[in-house]
Nucleic acid binder design. Structure first.
Lengths: 170, 170
DNA sequence: CAAGAGTACTTGACGAGTCAACGACCTGCG
DNA sequence: CGCAGGTCGTTGACTCGTCAAGTACTCTTG
């Protein structure tokens, strides 16, 4: 029953395997973390936004800056901030220098929520990522990730991401 | 680079940075690949399903096996196969030994679509992953990924390598 | 051999994101 | 000045996924 050997080999290329491994490892860790976040009535993207706000001067960022720093569109950020605002974790405040613009501002409740979530979250990162690797191995791993990140997301090192823009043949 | 870690640095922990790097690298590569797939009127999950079907004996798998091998629920698989079937890339066929069950069977059109997509896809994996790393570095990287994958997804090793023909287990 | 329990898939309702098309505002230039 | 053309954020319509419940079948067991 087995023929089409050449074709079959194309479908089982080692590059597919490598990418599959990358995917399984990342989505596996990611699922562990997401699972904890969900237990605190947040989704990953919301947690990430709260974290970025908490680290920004004044605890606030422009909607469009949030969109640039995450992998969401501005419309996605609008809806995400809607949800967080409904929950009292952020509020929208006017931007004095540009009346089109809005700040998303983390509230005390938002910071408190982060403080609830973070310690356990860091522990999970240790358990499912850091502690699995020898120190030297971890260094090599992070170095490889940095090379890849710099290649695929030029200018993202300081936190400014840009939507991938490549469109191919149609 | 570890300095005095005050409590407010909780929000800027090195573990957050490491996980952020993992996320940016993976989502970056993933976006490059997804972008190509979308150019061929598929989404990533559909491409993955076609690939798994093409490598399985008879070009078919049970719906529930597909769900187990991907990160979708059985209900997600139902709707994904609906779309592929509507496009003529797979068909549902009865399972003779269990009348509840269905096979998703890749069609010739489905295989042709894969053959269209794959060569360029493999090239992109080279460009945005493999070729970025020195051979030894790549080995270390894959080794680390394997450790992580084995920790977070016990029993998923068969993922992208060998077809698993094992229904009616337990 | 008939329940009862469990499995395989589908469906309805909904959540979370995208894109395209706004209205509101800002800026540069004739 | 005045307005053409960009940017900021929101909204409507849609896609792709989840969960919970439902239907149809299979397995176990007294």
């Amino acid at each position: 029953m087995s023929q089409n050997i050449a074709e079959t080999d194309l479908f089982a290329d080692h590059r597919i395997t490598a990418m599959g491994l990358f995917t399984e490892a990342f989505t596996g860790v990611s699922a562990k973390l997401a699972n904890q976040i969900v237990g605190h009535k947040l989704v990953m993207a919301e947690f990430e936004v709260l974290l970025r706000l908490s680290r920004s001067p004044g605890g606030r960022l422009r909607m469009s800056d949030l969109a640039a720093q995450t992998s969401l569109t501005t419309s996605g950020i609008t809806r995400l901030i809607d949800r967080l605002e409904r929950g009292g974790l952020v509020e929208r405040t006017a931007c004095p220098s540009d009346r089109r613009g809005l700040f998303a501002q983390i509230t005390d409740l938002g910071r408190a929520r982060l403080t609830d979530v973070l310690p356990e979250h860091l522990g999970l990162i240790d358990t499912w990522l850091i502690d699995l690797l020898e120190p030297a191995e971890l260094e090599g791993f992070l170095g490889a990730l940095r090379k890849i990140r710099d290649a695929v997301r030029p200018g993202a090192a300081a936190g400014t991401a840009e939507p991938v823009e490549d469109h191919h043949a149609k």
